[in-house]
Simulated scan of single mutants.
Amino acid sequence: MVHVVIHSQQNSNYTQDLVYLDFQGSFESAENPDVSNLEIGDLTLTETGATLIIGHHKLVGKKVKLAKPFAVIHKQKEETMDDAVCYDVVTILKEKYVFPTRPGLIVQESLRGLTKIGK
């Protein structure tokens, strides 16, 4: 039997401020198929929402309270006892930023109105 020990956030050696971002799709890159450590774009957080700029695309998100708080835990590398696994609570998330819509195209102001469709 393995014992699991979870240290509270106050007693944790591994605390961080984290943000939960919820996207309604996935990220792909032609140059780098592994997007885990890829710099995506510029994120701006406010009290009510968030904006993510990726190249010429803009995603707008809103801040939403989670139905139940979400604990983020980190497994300790060293084991204190023979049959115990120890975890530290990194943070408790109570809200997230949801990006429910497709990205909008950003067009430079100097290029707007240059294309005319029809007569």
Rank of each mutant, 00 (worst) to 15 (best):
M1S: 11
H3Y: 10
V4R: 14
V5I: 12
V5R: 09
V5M: 12
S8D: 08
S8G: 15
S8K: 10
Q10Y: 05
Q10V: 06
S12A: 04
S12R: 01
S12T: 03
T15M: 08
L18M: 12
Y20R: 15
L21Y: 00
D22V: 09
Q24Y: 13
G25A: 13
G25P: 10
S26G: 10
F27M: 08
E28F: 15
A30S: 14
E31I: 15
N32F: 13
V35T: 15
V35R: 09
V35Q: 07
S36D: 04
S36W: 03
L38I: 02
L38N: 00
E39L: 08
I40T: 12
L43C: 02
L45N: 04
L45Y: 03
L45A: 06
L45V: 04
T46Y: 01
T46E: 02
T46A: 01
E47S: 15
T48R: 13
G49S: 02
T51Y: 10
L52A: 03
I54K: 00
I54D: 03
G55Y: 11
G55W: 08
G55H: 09
H56F: 07
K58L: 12
K58I: 10
V60H: 12
G61I: 05
G61S: 03
K65V: 03
L66M: 02
A67S: 05
K68I: 10
P69L: 06
P69W: 06
P69I: 02
F70A: 02
I73M: 08
H74C: 04
K75M: 14
K75W: 06
Q76D: 11
Q76C: 15
K77N: 14
M81T: 10
D82H: 02
D83Q: 11
A84W: 04
A84T: 06
V85H: 01
V85A: 02
Y87S: 08
D88W: 00
V89A: 05
V90E: 10
T91L: 03
L93P: 08
E95R: 06
Y97P: 04
V98I: 14
V98C: 13
P100H: 12
P100R: 10
P100I: 09
P100E: 10
T101A: 12
G104Q: 08
G104P: 00
G104N: 09
L105Y: 03
I106F: 08
I106V: 13
V107E: 07
E109G: 11
S110P: 00
L111C: 13
R112S: 02
G113Y: 01
L114V: 14
K116W: 01
I117T: 04
